[in-house]
Structures are given as C-alpha cells and as structure tokens.
C-alpha cells in the first residue's frame, strides 16, 4: 500500500493561518493540512487499539477464575455453611459434622511455622541486605536461598521426615510438621524482606553513616521503621502458603483423624500429631466413602476464607503502618 508521508501544502490555507508570523509562503509551513492522520498513522492507531484490547482482556480474565472458584465453592458448600461446621468435630466416620480438629490443627501448624520462620528469615534478610559484602561466602548464602525457594514441597516433606521426625527424634508431631513448613516458607520470607529493605532509599543510610551511626543503629532507627510494613506483609502472605500445603505435613505430623473436644482451642500438644484443613480436604474427598456432599466444599471455603481474611488483615496493617509513618 502507498502511504503518504507528507502532504503538499494546499490552497485551503485560511487567512488567519496564512497571517501567522511563522508561515512563510512556499515553505513547508503550509497551514491547514498539517498534522493530519496519514494512512500509516491510522494503521498504527489500529494496532495500538488492538494491543491495548488484548492486554486488557488478559488482565481482566484474571477475575474469572477467582469469581468462578469462590462462586462454585460457596454454591456447593452452602448446605453445610454455618458456624457450627467450624466448631463441631467430624461425626459418623467423618461423613458428617464439622472440622474443628482440622481447623485448630492448621492454626497450630501455621502459627508455629511462622513463629520460627519469620524471625530467622527477617534477620537473615537484614544480614544479606545490610551487612553482606560481595564475597564468595555471601554468594553461597544467596545461592542457597534461591535454590531453597525452588525445592518442590514434596521434597521438603521427605527432608522433614528424615531430619525432624527421625534424626531429631521429634517423631510425627506438630513440631516436625511446623519446622518443615518453616523451612519451606523461609526463602520467600527472606526474599520479600530483602525487597522491603532495599526499598528504603540509600540516602537515608548515607545520612546515618555520615553522623557516625553503626550499621545496627542505622537499621534500628531508620531502615526497619521504614520497611516494617513491607516486611510484615511479606511474612503474612506466607500464611496462605503454609496453610495450603499438604505434602509436607502429611509426611511429618498430620493425621487423617484425631478425636478432640468440640471448640477446644488447646486440644493439641506440640509433640502430638494433629489434623489439618488441607489434609482433611484431601481425606474427605478421596479417602472416605459416602461423605455428605457439601462437606469437602465447605472445608475448602473455610480454608479459603481464613487465608483471604489473613491476607486482608495484612493489607490493612500495611496501610495503617504506612499512614502512621507519614504522621
């Protein structure tokens, strides 16, 4: 096709434009036909509109799975959805009743694993970001962190079994399972914490160094207060990961069934096995015949809702801390 890159000055020059100081007669500054769309420009605009549309569609498509998942689950779970479902224990060989033991078990596992992983991860990240020089030792650490993040969870499970259940003699227990989950979440906590620390401008650190602050004083007085919201968010987002994993706890401390009292929050000891939501979901879906149909779905809804609730808390906390930072 033939594009017309340049329009000859035409005779439709209005009196006003012709009278402009810049418009010299005979020059390119001909007036009325300047800055119009050429065919080539129109083609570019068409592509632009297309590109925008495709990208937007892909981004918008992200809503579909979420709505579909939540909608479908809630619909199927509806007959079982009531507070009693959470508070009650499973009944009639887990075909009916509630999920309290699994719910509490997941609380224990997630709480304990984060209580272990968060301090270790945050402190390690502070070291890597604030102290570590670029030498082989620190490169080895970084490499370890990156690779740890890439280990599949089933391998973590096997490691947890060998290390905590057998070698450390914690047995099949909440402790073993939590430690396995902790190791699994550690690299991500380290990565997100480092990101939060790196977002604190270098200029603040320089200001501190040049009045003679030690690294620790710099970290405590400036770096941490300005990155705490990012650090907390990163840690809390790991709740969903720890709560959702099945393999690592199945190998190390979660059981199909454990009888505890309805609504008892302190039902487990750390050296005991426990039930967990993710595991329970697997059990009632695949291992137990004749389960009331809405039970697996309701379990999933509880798991999902708890995780979303925690994430929402994280976001709220982040906003609150950020606002407070600006006093």
């Amino acid at each position: 096709m033939t594009d017309v890159p340049f329009q000859e000055p035409t005779s439709e020059v209005s009196g006003l434009e012709a009278g402009r100081p810049g418009s010299s007669p005979g020059g390119a500054a001909g007036g009325g036909r300047r800055f119009v769309r050429t065919a080539f420009v129109r083609r570019k605009e068409r592509f632009e509109a297309w590109a925008r549309g495709v990208f937007l569609a892909m981004a918008a498509a992200m809503i579909v799975p979420l709505v579909a998942i939540v909608g479908h689950l809630t619909y199927e779970a509806w007959p079982s959805l009531e507070l009693e479902f959470i508070l009650d224990v499973p009944r009639r060989g887990m075909t009916e009743g509630g999920i309290w033991p699994a719910f509490v078990g997941t609380l224990y596992l997630v709480g304990l694993s984060l209580a272990v992983a968060a301090p270790i991860g945050v402190l390690a990240a502070v070291y890597l970001n604030e102290y570590a020089r670029d030498n082989w030792f620190n490169r080895v650490i970084q490499l370890a962190v990156i690779n740890l993040a890439g280990v599949p969870s089933i391998v973590h499970a096997l490691f947890g079994l060998g290390a905590f259940v057998y070698a450390a003699r914690f047995g099949y227990s909440i402790l073993s399972a939590s430690l396995t989950l902790a190791i699994m979440t550690l690299p991500v906590i380290i990565a997100s914490t480092r990101e939060a620390l790196a977002a604190v401008p270098r200029a603040f650190r320089e200001a501190c160094w040049n009045v003679g602050a030690t690294r620790w004083q710099t970290i405590r007085s400036i770096v941490l207060p300005n990155s705490i919201s990012g650090i907390l968010t990163g840690v809390i987002l790991q709740v969903s990961r720890a709560a959702g994993e099945t393999a690592p706890i199945m190998f190390t401390g979660a059981v199909f069934y454990k009888a505890i009292a309805r609504g008892d929050l302190f039902a487990y000891r750390l050296d005991e096995q426990c039930m967990a939501l993710s595991m329970h979901l697997y059990t009632v879906t695949t291992q137990v015949p004749n389960v009331r149909e809405s039970v697996p779905y309701a379990t999933a809804v509880v798991l999902l809702a708890s995780v979303l609730l925690v994430n929402a808390t994280a976001i709220g906390l982040r906003l609150w801390l950020r606002n407070r930072k600006r006093w």
Binding site: E206, A207, N210, V211, G212, K325
Partner: peptide, 17 residues
C-alpha cells in the same frame, strides 16, 4: 568518632523521615 568529627552534606538534601 571520626565520622562524628567529619560530617557530610549531600547533593540531594537527605533529611531522615
């Protein structure tokens, strides 16, 4: 102690937040 006696001011003002 050295940095206490020899302070630095930067190109971009960098007051602490």
């Amino acid at each position: 102690e050295l940095r206490k006696a020899v302070g630095m001011v930067f190109q971009r003002p960098n007051p602490l937040p």
